[in-house]
């Protein structure tokens, strides 16, 4: 599904290159659940953003499904990630002005789906995540765990093939975190490919494979 070949990403500071990603090679097959680990500043989030096509890279090749991402224009990339990728963030990044229902619905609106279709899909999602009773609340009225649940629901509503999660449990207490990881596992079993960035060994253990990064470089697999 994903094939990264010799990916380099750098910024130029004071005339010399500082590498954010250095010669990353990675292959991800459909249905995998991968955890990216590493200390702060090791390039985990950068790698995730590159995979998510939110961020570009300076060198290397990136193949996603049948597309060669490195040859695509920005618009086409955006098209691609909108169709196939869902994002989950540490800080949830829900839109404060929208209710739970509306937050989940928004991606569908952007895809110009009809109201009736949207209603059915959101209702399914609310039901599945057991948050029907909370649908008219605003994010500020929810606990962190609940907000993250909404965040995941929103990421999944457009039926992505790939779910990218940047420290999804980073702001949660351990019990809430566990619930979210269980949910990820379940989603993965249903066929969604997941790549998560995490600091926690425990969370990493939910995945099928761990990638360790240090200073933008992939460490030898365990």
């Amino acid at each position: 599904m994903i094939n990264l070949k010799h990916i380099f990403k750098w910024v130029t500071v004071g005339g010399s290159r500082v590498f954010l990603l250095k010669d990353i090679n990675l292959e991800v097959k459909e249905g995998e659940f991968i955890s990216i680990m590493g200390p702060s500043g090791s390039g985990k989030s950068t790698l995730l953003n590159v995979i998510g096509m939110l961020d570009g890279f300076d060198e290397g090749e990136y193949h996603f499904l049948q597309e060669s991402v490195h040859t695509l224009k920005e618009k086409q990339r955006a098209q691609l990630y909108k169709q196939y990728i869902g994002f989950v963030f540490q800080a949830y990044h829900l839109i404060d002005e929208l209710t739970v229902y509306e937050n989940i619905e928004t991606p569908l609106i952007y895809q110009n789906l009809k109201t009736s279709e949207r209603k059915a899909m959101v209702a399914d999602m609310l039901d599945r995540f057991n948050i029907v009773g909370k649908k008219d609340l605003f994010p500020a009225q929810l606990s962190g765990g609940q907000q993250q649940l909404v965040g995941i629901a929103r990421a999944l509503i457009a039926k992505p093939k790939l779910l990218l999660a940047d420290e999804p449990t980073g702001n949660l207490n351990s019990k809430q975190g566990e619930e979210i990881m269980e949910l990820f596992k379940q989603l993965n079993n249903e066929g969604v490919t997941i790549i998560q960035v995490t600091h926690s060994e425990k969370n990493a253990a939910y995945g099928s494979r761990v990638i360790n990064l240090l200073d933008g470089r992939k460490e030898i697999n365990q």
Partner: peptide
């Protein structure tokens, strides 16, 4: 900017 960023990641085009 935060809201705009979120909207774009969840699929909004610039025109939207």
């Amino acid at each position: 900017s935060h809201e705009i960023g979120v909207r774009k990641t969840i699929g909004a085009s610039r025109w939207q």
